[in-house]
Amino acid sequence: MKRNEKELRRENNLLEKQLSKENQAILTDIVVYLKSFDISEYRVEIVRQDITNMILEGERRNLRTEDVIGPDYKAFCDSIVSELPPLTRKEKVWNMVNSVLLEFLVLLPIWALTSFSSAWKVEHSLPEFPVYAGSLLSLFFIAALAQGIVWYITKTSFEKEEPFHGNWWKQWLSLTAILLICFLPSFVFRQVLFYVHFGYVILLLLLLFAAYRLSELLHK
């Protein structure tokens, strides 16, 4: 199923390029919004293929997208979602595990770099890396923030805000403030919880990578 999904996504990407720029943007909003629901990626790709062909045929008939699928894209998506089977509990757990593994695969090397710098310049503990209470807290906050940002972007894909107008500034100021709050513990709580050998960090990274690949293979 995974291979079919990849193949379908590749075909859809090529198909989408045939659309006008304006319709590509509409389709992106639709797909992003659909991804905010508990629907399998494969089903989203099937629907994406149907909608792309629908809009493409509309273009050939000189019809606007709102004439093809109606003026309320959000309502259109909601009616589609209500007809698609939701993810099973197993699939939901798999999705969550997969995204958490991916997040830590990104965050762990960043933590390792900052910890290496502390081990070298502050703690003089190389090859042992210090694990600060604050760094762990910050890592978890950042992981949660990343999930929150994805949720916000997908849920509000149809709400258009012009940059540098209205709520746009407020949103970016709030985001910056939240980011600062996420990083704050790593500056405040500098107590070393324990030291971990450089080799174990590499091993953990490899294990995370293997677990991520395995969870992908199991999903096939």
Binding site: I69, F76, I80
Partner: peptide
């Protein structure tokens, strides 16, 4: 009746 109404 648009295709958008029929599709779901």
């Amino acid at each position: 009746i648009t295709e958008g109404t029929i599709y779901p």
